[in-house]
Design a protein around this nucleic acid. Structure first.
Length: 663
RNA sequence: GCUCGUGUAGCUCAGUGGUAGAGCACUCCCUUGGUAAGGGAGAGGUCGACGGUUCAAUCCCGUCCACGAGCUCCA
């Protein structure tokens, strides 16, 4: 057989050759440094046989890709360490059962079924043992077993591995990786791995242990998952740990409390946030923005109650398909009432309240209605996952011919918002139904599912929008486009959503008189480009680390008088700013100026205005800004105009005032 | 909902089987200071809730609640 090297050279090799042989053929130095290989562009290891005629490049620790191999082997090293730690305390080896141990972003994990729960001290012990295994430089060996033999190997010992083998297709070779010989550790594994545990750099750390259902199925046993991170060089590990610390600092739950934006109170209930005045101000700014955008885009605003009778939700399909996410009914005069989990049924009723003509379409109804969803306790998280939520909601009723245009207008609106907020990293995700879920999670109409999913896909493709597809993630009434965002601290969640509803308009007998006089059922688009106010504010806090653009900042200007005799001027200035539509506070506490400046900075107020004798005399301000540095002796009126301009344009970036405008 | 962890003042955290402490924040007094903490005094806690063990529980045990990490789920 032969292979081709990156420089185009052909290398002839004996049969069953591996990348290790290639490295050895090239030179002893490379053979020593080699950790893995790229075969026809695929990452693989030195232990796997090469296909005849392959393009082969030998990878060393200098190649980023080998980090994957290191992390994968480290997962095995951890499994071995866990087994060792448990057998050392007298647990029979067979009582330590192994799930799976894959590579993940920044590291790896391994799932275990253990006779007792792991405590933090165990992680320390395991890590110590891992370092010993790495230091022992155990060589890895890859081998294949026939199916029957592989099954015997795990029978009665490890039901998880047994299940994995049984679920693998018959024609897939069952490969194993063994480290440290028979007395070491062997795992059913596809690879790829580094050739020796000594090839793993010591820059790893076990982070946490958490429960995880076997194969992600909540009806299956819960295993103990140990997470670890690993990097090639010390600096990378340190940077990662530092980033985690930084992320904690900009967590919206921490900043939300520090900046007095929202609070959660035990007496009110889990997932039911209270908006403090500063948070309410931000919501009002968001609503003002949305109203402006929607007015331009031809939306009309409506309002609907928070609850409705059972029959409404039976008709909409929420009770059959969504009841688990709803608060339980309250009974009044022998009639069940439910808090609304969505606004759509109400909007359908508004549509149905008048006869509609094709001339009315598209009919775009918007409402920032508060909905209530009974989320699992374990799912609640600050503002990102709550039980009372105010949606930036609207429903667009249109004909099939209008669908694509309306759909793309909504996508266009998303993009406009993202630009305004400086959101650059997002993924559009086409969420589709699954055949298995029909009649259970999804309305049972396979043809319409296929048809609408095609319509959405075509609309996106025609609009040149990049997207990925996800099965079994649709809404019960139709497919949707979710926009996945990664917040500044790396938290991923769904922000905007745009959903197609082919089911509810029919269930509500919604219709319109078409041009030809026939009665037609409209399509409905559900859209929430700003998600819910809760999640969106939570996102904004993390996105800006509390350093909001001026138009969003709850307090835009903090006025700090230097001495008591400047208080009157400070108050006058505050009035001037307030009259100009700006949000300003004067700090009249009996503190020193330095302390007041510090407090304003920690509170992340965009502008701190210092006023003393000079400013009072000149009718001027001196300010320090978090975005444009310091500026002295500026006419108050100029300062006001400067801020107004940024607020009006909802500017993301600050254009500093030129020095020409100072007095 | 599941697994594990946590719960002491507004916040960050000490601490003890004999009913509690620090720093910051808060209130008052002194200080009137030019761009990130001036000084002093005071007030503030059913030690998450309910049971149990004990002469005695914030501490030990149990149940519940809330929060956190992860799993599942989702805007």
């Amino acid at each position: 057989m032969f292979i081709t090297l990156p420089d185009g050279k052909r290398l002839d090799l004996p049969k069953h050759a591996t990348a290790k042989h290639v490295a050895e053929a090239i030179g002893p130095g490379l053979a020593k440094a080699a950790l893995g290989a790229s075969v026809n562009g695929q990452l693989t290891d030195l232990l796997s046989e090469l296909p005849d005629g392959a393009q082969v490049a030998i990878l060393t620790k200098r190649d980023d890709a080998t980090l994957r191999l290191m992390r994968h082997t480290l997962a095995h090293v951890m499994a071995q360490a866990v087994a060792d730690v448990f057998t050392a305390e007298g647990t029979p080896r067979d009582a330590v059962k192994m799930g799976i141990g894959p590579v993940i972003e920044n590291g790896f994990y391994y799932d275990f079924d253990l006779p007792r729960t792991l405590v933090p001290e165990d992680l320390e012990k395991i890590e110590v043992r891992m370092r010993e295994i790495v230091a022992a430089k155990l060589p890895l060996r890859k081998f294949e077993l026939p199916r029957a033999e592989a099954l015997t190997r795990f029978k009665g010992k490890d039901p998880y591995k047994l299940e994995l083998i049984q679920d693998l297709p018959e024609d897939v070779p069952l490969t194993f990786y063994e480290q440290g010989g028979e007395g070491g550790f062997t795992d059913l594994c596809r690879g790829p791995h580094v050739p020796n545990t000594g090839d793993i750099p010591p820059h790893f750390k076990l982070m946490s242990v958490a429960g995880a259902y076997w194969r992600g199925d909540e009806s299956r046993p819960m295993l103990q998952r140990v997470y670890g991170v690993a990097f090639r060089i010390k600096e990378d590990l340190e940077r990662h740990l530092w980033q985690l610390e930084e992320a904690k600092k900009r967590d919206h739950r921490k900043l939300g409390a520090e900046l007095d934006i929202f609070t959660l109170d035990e007496d009110i209930g889990p997932g039911l946030p209270l908006w403090l005045p500063r948070g309410a101000l931000m919501i009002e700014e968001i609503e003002a923005l949305a109203k402006e955008m929607e007015r331009k885009a031809g939306y009309q605003r409506v309002k609907s109650p928070h609850l409705a009778k059972e029959q409404l939700f039976l008709k909409s399909g929420h009770l059959p398909y969504y009841e688990g996410d709803m608060f339980p009914a309250m009974e009044l005069d022998n009639v069940k009432y439910y808090l609304k989990p969505m606004n759509c049924p109400f909007h359908h009723k508004i549509y149905a309240a008048r006869p509609r003509s094709y001339r009315d379409l598209p009919l775009r109804l918007a409402e920032y209605g508060t909905c209530y969803r009974y989320e699992d306790h374990g799912a609640l998280m600050g503002l990102m996952r709550v039980r009372s939520l105010q949606m930036n909601d609207a429903h667009i009723y249109c004909s099939e011919a209008q669908f694509e245009d309306e759909f793309m207008r909504v996508i266009g609106m998303y993009l406009e918002y993202f630009k305004l907020f400086g959101v650059h990293e997002y993924v559009m995700r086409l969420s589709k139904h699954s055949k298995e879920g029909l009649g259970k999670k999804y309305v049972d109409n396979p043809e319409l599912w296929e048809k609408t999913e095609d319509m959405v896909r075509n609309a996106l493709q025609n609009g040149g929008i990049n997207f990925i597809e996800a099965d079994d993630e649709a809404a019960f009434y139709g497919p949707k486009i979710d926009v996945q965002i990664r917040s500044a601290i790396g938290r991923e969640f769904t922000l905007a959503t745009n959903q197609v509803d082919f089911a509810q308009p029919g269930r509500f007998n919604l219709e319109y008189i078409a041009e030809d006089g026939s009665r037609q059922t409209p399509l409905c688009l559900h859209r929430a480009p700003l998600s819910t106010h809760e999640r969106f504010i939570g996102f904004l806090i993390e996105h800006f680390a509390g350093d909001f653009p001026l138009w969003l900042a709850p307090e835009q200007v903090r006025i700090v008088p230097i001495a008591d005799r400047h208080n009157d001027y400070a108050l006058k200035l505050r009035e001037q700013l307030t009259d100009a539509g700006l949000r300003a506070e004067a700090d009249l506490r009996g503190e020193r100026m330095n302390a007041k400046v510090r407090d304003a900075e920690l509170y992340k107020v965009p502008y701190t205005v210092i006023v003393g004798d000079k400013e009072v005399e000149a009718g001027a301000v001196s300010f320090r800004s978090r975005k444009e540095g310091e500026q002295k002796d500026m006419a108050a009126a100029v300062f006001v105009q400067h801020l107004q301009a940024h607020v009006k344009g909802r500017a993301l970036e600050v254009v500093p005032l030129s020095h020409l405008e100072t007095v």
